[in-house]
Structure formats: structure tokens, C-alpha cells
Design a protein around this nucleic acid. Structure first.
Length: 570
RNA sequence: UGGGGUGUGGCCAAGUUGGUAAGGCAACGGGUUUUGGAUCCGUGUACCGGUGGUUCAAGUCCUCCCACCCCAGCCA
């Protein structure tokens, strides 16, 4: 068996054996481990975004594939930044993505006592000391990337003194910043992380879970590896920026002699074209009011895209397709949209809705007459059922479906042209009515009664099929046409003196009043459908009211006509 | 300038005892179609960052070089 064969029993058939799966397979094969235990360790200080989705799918996915486990662990070691609000949203998002941690929900703060104990142990081993320099002094004596640091004058304190000081730190005898517990490693180490890193700092702050029980809190590097060890994690997977920290991760566990012990592996975080995925920048978008909030449908947060209408299935598929590797990369947003459309195409019922209405009067259609057409919810799945849509003399059609002087490749309506109204009739445009400014305000058409249902006996070929809504029966609805939030693939690409907000797309949200078929009156918040020929839309979960749905455009349909137009302009 | 990483078609990404470059997205062309949707078929001379070398044979081994990313929080 070659090393890249999946481990026996692993449910990974057909999937790419990325380097982490290969490492696990190897460990299972050579006996390093007989099971897999991973964890997803968010800090509860912000909302989850698409980058986290990659990590969640990786960690929880591995747990499932190898019939192992994946813990949800909140890395809550910094009380001043964290809040319960975030732990709730994180849980909701992970659950929504489709993962279940069962009873395996933990907090680094659950281990404060143990972690403290390990710190004491290090002090007793002479491997840690209380430094009483100021933060500035510590920074100054850390050296630079190319020059070594220097020893703290407190570095050689006795074990007894260190123990006493550390005890008093915990007891609350000192103010923030007065002392800090440091590992005694090597102030000249080429890896700066190992230059006597801080292990515990004083923070007189109320922790969202432990309250005021503690006034000293462990640093990430100290708490994380120990939490992994305590939980029996086998493979601790994180992103590339922690590669340097692995040396400290190993130092702590090795020095303490914890065994069997987890190992850390790093993969490249997700970058996407046309979006930003850093907490800092997302906060900026929210705080400066560029978006309506964390769950604005344009945000790459999980709550944002959920509200936009993205599905967990599409996300999971996407995360599998992008792969897991160590090279910095930027995935084309089009791949995410492809995964989304593939999923939505399968599940979204088709309905008719007009987003930019143009009035059409069918002159030879009897006034007052109404026909009910039965239309399928799905073009290829009969079990999706049908609904009935009213047709009458006056209709709304899409403004872009009419051109007064259309080019030959335009298959839609124009003066004298005949098109099909989906599942209804063939109509021919006989007259164009304009207002004083010359804008087209109404079309006069005639219909062919012999084409009922949208089909003709004579085999006449009709190239264009258009969607429509009967004016008298239409349900007015607010429709939000979302577009990309940034105009550049790389939002960070700016002129001197500007920041990424300079690349915000002023047209990322166009809110219009549209008309949809009456069957949508009862659509529930979160309901996802396809407005035929336009795209996928979902009923907004926040702003819709009973009988007054607000639709968010999740994603447009693939638009080959737009491509034809683009190519014509070249 | 120290240390740690990474470089395979436009974008991701396989490639693992060296044997002569998967797949997906995008793009382009065509069939089919009551969504210019969906679907089906087809299209790429990838100097495998560069260089020199080992070898019958190198993306895979060795040399040197280049580019990019990360690290000097009592953040994670």
C-alpha cells in the first residue's frame, strides 16, 4: 500500500488525499495513533466567516471521515476581547454548516486551573520565571529579527521567589502589567517566538465564563497546546501564520513531558477574490456603516451568506473542492458561486418574478379575462409539483427583455418580433409607447390564441422565452439586487493613502420594487427559489413581513447573453 | 540582514520507490433545450520559479539563485 492510500475504513473515497489526510493515514498505518481527534478552536471575539468554514469543514470533516471526534473549543484566554454573544453565534454557525459536536463543547477557560498548575510545574523545573520589567522593556530586550535579545534582570530569580510572586500574581496583589510569567528558553533564539515568551499575564478583567475568579490569564501559546493535550487531540490543525509558534507548542509539551501528545499541522488559510476575510477589516465594514451589520447579505460572514441564501451543502462542497495545501492562494469567487448554483439548481423551485418592470398590454386578449396556467416548480423533477399562475391582458415583463433596435443576436422582444411568454402564449410586439422624454413606458402586443401553454402546432421556431407576471395579480415585493462588495479582485490594491474601502462597489446593493407571482405571498423567511431567467432569491429572514416578503438575490443565473454582449464589445 | 514556509496552465490543485503532467473553476466552440438556466460533447505547445548537475530517464534527487508569505502583542 502506498502512503497516499486512504487509511482502512476511512470514508474518504474519491476525495483528494491532501497532505493532512496523508499524514493521518500514515499515523494510522504506522501505529502512531489508532484514532483521530481534532478540534475547531475559535476565539469568541467575532463572527465566523468563510475562512472559518474551511477550517470547520477540515476539522469536523476529518473527525467524521476517520470515525474519530472533533471538539468545539472556545479559545477564551483573553477576557477583554471576548464575549458570550460570540460563543452563541459561533455555535449557531457551526451547527448551520452541518456539524455536530455532541457533548464535546469545551472552553480553554475550563482548564485554567490545570494550565496554572503546569505553569507552577515549569517554575519548579526552573523553566519559567516571573519578569517584572514593563512591556516596553520586554519589547526592547527581545532583540530584532536579525539580532539576539538580552536577558531580563529578573531571569535568574530563585524558584521560591518565582513561586511566591506567581502566587501573589494570582492572588491579585499586583496591577495589570506589573509582572508577567515567562518561559525561560533562549533570548538569542533565531525564532523570536522562543525568546522567553510570556505564559501568563495579569488582567483584572471579568471573564465571560469564569467571572472574577482569575486575574491572571494564560497566553495563547501556553493555553492552546495544553488544551489540546488535555482533550487528547491527536492532530492540531491551524493556519500557516502559526508555523513559527509550533516550536513553542512543542517546547511546552515536551518540557512538561506530556505524552502521548498532539502535533500541530498548518495549512493555508482561505483567500477569495473580491472579498476580505479578516476580522479587523470586517469590523471596519460594520463600524463604518458600509454594510448594515455582521449579517448583511454582502458580508462573507457565515451569518451574512446564510441570510443571502447560501446553503451549507454548497459551502461544504466548496471547502472540499478548494483543497488543503500550504501554498498561499486566492480562490476565484466564481468557484463558490458555481457550487452554490449547482446546489440551488437542484433544490430551488422556479417561480416568476419581474425585477425591472415594463408594462405590456395584449390588445387582442379579452379584457377582464383571466387564465390559470399550471406551471412546474422544476424543469426536470416532476415530483417538485406545480402551482397555478394567473395570466391576463396586462402584464409586467422585464425591461431588459425589450430592445427597440435589437442586434441580430438578441432573441427577445423588439418591434414586430414574436417571443414566447413562458408557459403562456406567443406574443408579438406591435407598438412601442414612450413618454415625453422618449423613454419606453409600455408595449402593445398581440397574442396567438393557438399557442396556449407556450407551444405552437405549426412547429414555428421561437427563440426567446420570457418571464412575466400579470399586473392585476402581481404581488409587489422589495427585491434586493446584491452584487460584489468590492470592484477589484484584490480589494487591498489601492492608491497611496487609501484603504480597501476605496474599492467598495457603490452598486453592491440595489433595492428595487418588483412584482412576483401571487403564489409567493405565503413564502416563509429563508425560502429559496429561482426567479426564472434572473437568479436565485431568498426571502429575507429579518425584513420580511407576512404577505410582504423582501427578496434577496442570492446569486444570478449564469448569463451567457451577458457574455455575448461582452464579446460583441470587444 | 535571522528564522520559518511556499513556488505545477487565468484561478485552485493532484503528482509520495525518478519513467516522461489528474481533476475542478474560469474561458472558448458545438449539440440539445418552453429559463440565452440546466444538460451533453469538444478545445490548452503547463519551458512544472530560474540555474547548473546526477541519471538511459527529473515536477519528482543534488547545487546555487530568484520571488512571494509569516514572525520582534503582556492578541489569537
Amino acid at each position: 500500500m502506498s502512503s497516499n492510500a486512504p487509511a482502512p475504513g476511512a470514508e474518504t473515497d474519491g476525495r483528494v488525499r491532501h497532505f493532512i489526510r496523508q499524514i493521518i493515514d500514515q499515523h494510522l498505518k504506522d501505529g502512531s495513533w489508532d484514532h483521530v481527534a481534532t478540534r475547531f478552536p475559535p476565539e469568541p471575539n467575532g463572527y465566523l466567516h468563510l475562512g472559518h468554514a474551511k477550517s470547520i469543514c477540515l476539522n469536523f470533516g476529518l473527525g467524521q471521515e476517520y470515525h474519530g471526534s472533533c471538539n468545539l473549543r472556545f479559545d477564551d484566554t483573553n477576557p477583554v476581547k471576548e464575549d458570550v454573544e460570540y460563543v452563541e453565534s459561533i455555535k449557531e454557525d457551526v451547527r448551520w454548516l452541518g456539524f455536530d459536536w455532541g457533548q464535546r463543547q469545551f472552553f480553554a477557560s475550563d482548564y485554567f486551573e490545570q494550565i496554572h498548575g503546569y505553569a507552577v510545574q515549569l517554575i519548579e523545573m526552573g523553566k519559567a520565571y516571573v519578569d517584572s520589567q514593563t512591556a516596553e522593556q520586554i519589547r526592547e530586550t527581545r532583540g530584532t529579527l536579525t539580532s539576539p535579545g538580552s536577558h531580563s534582570p529578573y531571569r535568574e530569580r530563585s524558584v521560591e521567589e518565582n513561586l511566591d510572586l506567581f502566587r501573589r500574581m494570582r492572588a491579585g496583589e499586583f496591577k495589570d502589567g506589573e509582572h508577567v510569567l515567562r518561559a525561560k528558553i533562549d533570548m538569542a533564539h533565531p525564532n523570536v517566538v522562543l525568546r522567553d515568551p510570556a505564559l501568563f499575564r495579569i488582567r483584572h478583567a471579568t471573564h465571560h465564563r469564569t467571572g472574577d475568579a482569575w486575574c491572571i490569564y494564560p497566553m495563547y501559546d501556553f493555553a492552546h497546546c495544553l488544551s489540546d493535550a488535555i482533550e487528547g487531540i491527536t492532530h492540531s490543525i491551524c493556519t500557516l501564520e502559526f508555523e513559527n509558534n509550533r516550536a513553542l507548542y512543542d517546547w511546552v509539551l515536551d518540557t512538561l513531558g506530556l505524552t502521548p501528545r498532539p502535533r500541530q499541522y498548518e495549512f493555508a488559510r482561505l483567500n477569495l477574490t473580491g472579498t476580505v476575510l479578516s476580522k479587523r477589516k470586517l469590523i471596519q465594514l460594520v463600524q463604518q456603516g458600509h454594510v448594515s451589520g455582521w449579517d448583511d447579505p454582502r458580508m462573507p460572514t457565515l451569518c451574512g451568506i446564510r441570510r443571502r441564501g447560501y446553503t451549507p451543502e454548497a459551502l461544504r462542497d466548496f471547502c472540499e473542492r478548494i483543497g488543503v495545501a500550504k501554498a498561499d492562494s486566492t480562490v476565484d469567487f466564481a468557484l463558490l458561486e458555481h457550487c452554490l448554483r449547482e446546489d440551488l439548481n437542484r433544490r430551488a423551485p422556479r417561480v416568476l418574478g419581474v425585477v425591472n418592470p415594463l408594462k405590456v398590454v395584449i390588445e387582442n386578449y379579452p379584457e377582464g379575462q383571466v387564465e390559470e396556467f399550471e406551471m412546474p416548480y422544476s424543469p426536470e423533477d416532476e415530483s417538485a409539483g406545480t402551482r397555478t399562475v394567473p395570466f391576463s391582458r396586462e402584464l409586467w415583463i422585464e425591461r431588459e427583455d425589450f430592445m427597440e433596435d435589437p442586434p441580430k443576436k438578441f432573441f427577445r422582444l423588439g418591434p414586430g418580433r414574436e417571443v414566447r411568454l413562458r408557459f403562456a402564449y406567443y406574443v408579438t410586439c406591435t407598438e412601442v409607447i414612450k413618454d415625453e422624454s422618449g423613454e419606453v413606458v409600455e408595449l402593445r402586443c398581440t397574442y396567438d390564441p393557438a399557442t396556449k401553454g407556450g407551444w405552437s402546432q405549426d412547429g414555428r421556431k421561437i427563440k426567446g422565452t420570457m418571464h412575466w407576471v400579470s399586473i392585476a395579480h402581481a404581488l409587489p415585493a422589495q427585491v434586493r439586487l446584491y452584487d460584489k462588495l468590492f470592484v477589484k479582485d484584490n480589494p487591498m490594491e489601492v492608491e497611496d493613502g487609501q484603504d480597501f474601502t476605496a474599492n467598495l462597489n457603490p452598486e453592491s446593493l440595489k433595492s428595487v420594487q418588483g412584482y412576483v407571482e401571487p403564489s409567493l405571498a405565503t413564502a416563509e423567511p429563508g425560502f429559496i427559489c429561482q426567479f426564472e431567467r434572473l437568479g436565485y432569491f431568498c426571502v429575507d429572514s429579518k425584513d420580511s413581513a407576512p404577505g410582504k416578503p423582501v427578496f434577496n438575490r442570492t446569486v444570478t443565473l449564469r448569463d451567457t447573453w451577458a457574455q455575448v454582449q461582452r464579446n460583441m464589445n470587444k
